[in-house]
Design a protein around this nucleic acid. Structure first.
Lengths: 251, 251
DNA sequence: CCAAAAGTGTTCATTCTACACCCATGG
DNA sequence: CCATGGGTGTAGAATGAACACTTTTGG
């Protein structure tokens, strides 16, 4: 968006604003397609999963891919991302964050399509993948068993996973993957799965409880063949307060 | 990029791949412009600066803005970003990382332009901003004195600064802002400027040296009116080795 | 010899780690 | 009363913060 000393690059056309912006034709510049791809992570029975689709159309017919779609010219990117997730899962409110843009010239056979990747987190148990709202051809795939994906989706998934791991250490996004009420052992198992580590039970709970971000629900598990665990929920209000005061979450 | 159960969104056109991708017209989808905006941070005399331009063309003629330009349809985004930086500063090799995409429908008066933001780090002393290679109308502005910017550039700058602060704590990107040879006090001053904190001298150097990422050059400052400081340089090779072994930088 | 900044060592408090132990429930 | 996981206490190590002190240079 700047005036730049024009050294002619690939094309022989001048930078948009080297002359008044209404005086030249932009047709050459307005040829991009824009899409969104969603990396939806789910957590179930101590395994991290990702939502994949089996493509029902060309290109890459029959291949596995991340769910995504083109963005409409009068649609905000985030709205498109929410639309896609809604259509896939029936859920309209879920945690979502942009990761990166992918724009290699040849990444899409149909033309110059750049794509914005989003990742989301979902508690699988809360949203039955076989409920009627779910789209056909959508599957939860264990992260360890992800096959090769269409387009540059392998790279997108890898980057999203990196981002997730990064975030989970410094922001309490992990809670998005758990039910409202959970036991500390569940939380520990989640972090162990996400970060591929093992923590000492006593020390883990001390660290977590010291943050004062959990609400002790004074309620316990039922029908378990051992001492029932105390249930907790995440105190988002308190988290926001702390953040406002400059607190920084660390694990 | 997926087949999605089609619920009609804003427009009345179907998702690209709901039918074979060569059978429908894409014209409606390929109307986006793509630009790059660069947030170039520099460091000089204990102050953090950012490169801004004074716009010489409409829209926002005369306003301050981040340097940027449209991407050519056959040009990779990263190439465009490098081209812009080269034209601005004459430097072709410098640290650069994508931050986010901005794509609000109305963010640009000339049409639907989405922009990818990159941030870079530069040692100002190394690159005289008045050298002939520099573009006209480009200025280093102290971060504390940045005026309101054109488009959504205020937001872009703010996000880039957040990213920089985040990165600088967890990866040794700070070294990009310093000369090859630097004293520990320089490094400390840099971190203090970046993170707006004050560190204890003794403890700071203990922490830094304990990482074993600095090469003691066995060389000292000259002509200073006090005890000359030992000079160091960053050991990138060792850093890469440590990273490969799963080491994580923290400050 | 003084000012100024480089560079070091020590103490004390805090946090982290490992591990042992007790508790509540169902079968 | 046993198996199973929930839940707690403690000792010792490691880390971090504060601060006083020594060193080397130019003027």
């Amino acid at each position: 968006m700047a005036e730049i000393k024009e050294k002619e690059p690939v094309l022989e056309q001048k930078s948009q604003f080297a002359v008044p912006y209404y005086a030249i034709s932009y047709d050459k510049f307005f040829q991009f397609g824009l899409s969104v791809d969603c990396v939806v992570f789910g957590y179930h029975e101590k395994r991290l999963k990702v939502l994949l689709i089996k493509r029902g159309a060309e290109p890459y017919l029959g291949s596995w891919a991340l769910p995504g779609d083109l963005v409409y010219p009068n649609e905000n990117i985030e709205v498109a991302a929410k639309r896609i997730l809604k259509d896939l899962t029936g859920i309209s409110e879920l945690f979502m964050e942009q990761t990166k843009v992918y724009g290699k010239v040849d990444r899409h056979p149909a033309g110059r399509v750049i794509t914005t990747a989003y990742y989301s987190l979902i508690d699988i148990a809360k949203h039955d993948p076989h409920a009627s709202a779910w789209a056909e051809g959508v599957y939860w795939v264990d992260l360890e068993e992800v096959p090769g994906l269409a387009f540059d989706h392998d790279e997108i998934l890898e980057d999203a996973l990196q981002t997730l791991r990064q975030r989970v250490r410094h922001q309490p996004v992990g809670f998005e993957l758990l039910p409202q009420k959970f036991a500390l052992a569940d939380l520990q198992a989640l972090y162990e799965a996400l970060l591929n580590e093992v923590y000492d039970k006593a020390n883990f709970r001390k660290r977590i409880l010291a943050m004062n971000l959990l609400i002790n629900l004074k309620e316990s598990q039922k029908d378990v063949p051992h001492r029932p665990a105390r249930l907790y929920s995440f105190d988002k209000k308190r988290y926001d307060e702390l953040i406002a005061k400059g607190f920084s979450f660390e694990l």
